[in-house]
Design a protein around this nucleic acid. Structure first.
Lengths: 107, 107
DNA sequence: TATTTGCGCAACTTGAAAGTTGCATATATA
DNA sequence: TATATATGCAACTTTCAAGTTGCGCAAATA
């Protein structure tokens, strides 16, 4: 099944993995050493991250280096953009308030 | 239990709720009309969003208008900031590649 | 070649989340 | 006051994700 990036990011371990490999590509074993869980558990997280293309594998013999895919992470940034005006403009906040009050008046 | 914002946005219904009330504050009933599920189901999503302070209630008689809390949403933006350089600077991407190659060489 | 190492896949257990129905409470309205 | 409406809480079922153990395969190494 195709994973979605929002669910991928929901897990704290996966967020930690992303933070790690954003600095430097790592193998599954190297990642597992950082967390208090089995390698297979980490491997499942890698699978999720790979399926939604947040990370990309680079084979090197029997090792696999997983790289951070910044481009995919931008999708999250784009989703967030729809809310950005909500905190960047106070006028907008005021507008919401006025709209709400007006709406209540018509009920 | 205190919810975390990453899990809160993992659910597509909750993301839809946020998109709706970012434009205008709504009551639980008004939200439920937008989705194909019971009012109670929506109410549970509201509870999650409220617990992590992504939305704020405004009581008005027996109705409750839920407002979007843009300030809390900024936490995503802050988390995302650590990755922003990864897609904003090609030099940085190249740097990662070089670091990885060098790392492999020392193994 | 035989053995070790790195990795992925499958089956299983457990716990939590998403949805349902039913009920209680508070406010508005007849 | 009696009734209707808006909401939240509790119990329950079902689905699914996170973790485990066990196994198989490919590549490196003795």
């Amino acid at each position: 099944m195709k994973q979605d990036i929002f669910q991928a990011i929901a897990d704290p371990t996966r967020r930690a993995i992303l933070t790690l490999i954003a600095i430097q590509a790592l193998t599954p074993n190297a990642m597992a050493e950082k967390f208090d869980m089995t390698r297979q558990a980490v491997s499942k997280h890698i699978k999720v991250l790979h399926e939604c293309e947040l990370i990309k594998p680079e084979h090197s013999g029997r090792e696999i280096y997983y790289h951070f895919n910044a481009k995919k992470m931008q999708e999250f940034d784009h989703w967030l953009a729809q809310f950005r005006q909500n905190w960047e403009t106070q006028f907008n906040q005021l507008d919401h308030l006025l709209t709400t009050i007006k709406e209540q008046g018509t009920k």
